[in-house]
Design a protein around this nucleic acid. Sequence first.
DNA 1: ATCCACTTGGCAGTCGCTGCCACGTAGGCA
DNA 2: TGCCTACGTGGCAGCGACTGCCAAGTGGAT
Lengths: 214, 214
Amino acid sequence: MPLWQCWVNLVGMKQEAGTATDAPTTLWDRSRRLAAQEILDTALRLFTEQGYDETTIAQIAREAGVSQRTLFRYFGTKEDLLGGDQDRFGQVLADTISELPADVGVWEALRSGIAAVLALHDSREQALERFRLLHNTPSLRAGWLEKRLRFQEDLLPLVEARMDAAVGSADARARAVIATAFACLDAASMTWVDNGGKGDIIDLYDACLAAVRG
Amino acid sequence: MPLWQCWVNLVGMKQEAGTATDAPTTLWDRSRRLAAQEILDTALRLFTEQGYDETTIAQIAREAGVSQRTLFRYFGTKEDLLGGDQDRFGQVLADTISELPADVGVWEALRSGIAAVLALHDSREQALERFRLLHNTPSLRAGWLEKRLRFQEDLLPLVEARMDAAVGSADARARAVIATAFACLDAASMTWVDNGGKGDIIDLYDACLAAVRG
DNA sequence: ATCCACTTGGCAGTCGCTGCCACGTAGGCA
DNA sequence: TGCCTACGTGGCAGCGACTGCCAAGTGGAT
């Protein structure tokens, strides 16, 4: 588990403001970043051209000019080839929420976090392509949902702190609120993809949440 | 794709009332059902003993006394070895909801469907064991979520019919409502497992939904 | 008893993924 | 400048889930 792998995260996605990530530009670093970008581009291209399940790791590696073994060193799983590192989503989400003042309500805090994550995408087109792939490929969707479930658990303490104390299991209620927010995000992004990327996801999210909460 | 595989569904789960499923008890049918039950029991035992990921198909097949090939003919995937056939959940869910009178609201209808699905389990202990495995095994959880997402899409028209017409995308709103119901079910069952199976899941579900809808 | 349909097991192969080992090269140091 | 070390890389063998194919055995109907 070499340290340099954390650099890969920054490929193909915006950096967070203020994060200095350009310290020692050695030749190794540069070629690594180049290779990662090449792999990512090749993968996204092949996925959209012929589908996720129909694209093998061997093919991506061949067309990107690296060995399978190296590809797996850059990106641990096939899923990671879509959207770089999804763990960053959870990071940004948690950071955004925890930096909000304490008097901001749960729902508003979650909305802010989601908006921050949505803002991570490079372009509307890239986002649409990724969401489309995500929603139309069962195997991808499964992995994505699973990873997201881990974010949700991480969010638990942050959300619980913002909820008014009430009877019953606080855990269950916080979990439900978080899961609902993501459920609305799912519904919103699916509809967004179905509409070909028209409008803003966050607006659809608001509409979904309104439909749920009455 | 032999027809008889649909029989497997009935193993290890309650049958629906009024479904006559005992027509021609040939020797083949009996031995098939016996084999399926044996496989299912062995799998659940090994899963709980040593974990899902640590149990190989080869081991289950060996201890159940069948070949790997036959095991895969009975249950198409490793996931299917937990809880028999999960597709029936979707079936029961859709049936329950569609048989409700038209003036029953969305939320109440979804609650009824979920209650019907929960009633499918043989015993509290078995349900607890399955839920525990489900929530503690990432790979299982992923597959389960994915399958459930398919139910959700199937439910779309049924739910849309019960929602009051309003502005905005009806699709998105219906999707959000369905996903929220399942999100609350998730939160409820997770908490239920964490509490060691104390109380009724449906009560926790109500609490979660109340927390969400205010 | 015969024939057909069905089930079974074994074998080879695919695909995602990992551990191991040897090779080559970049970067630091004398 | 030349060497050494640490790191990146590729290849290979292997695992586990899963599939297609083929041969063999068995139940059931005529």
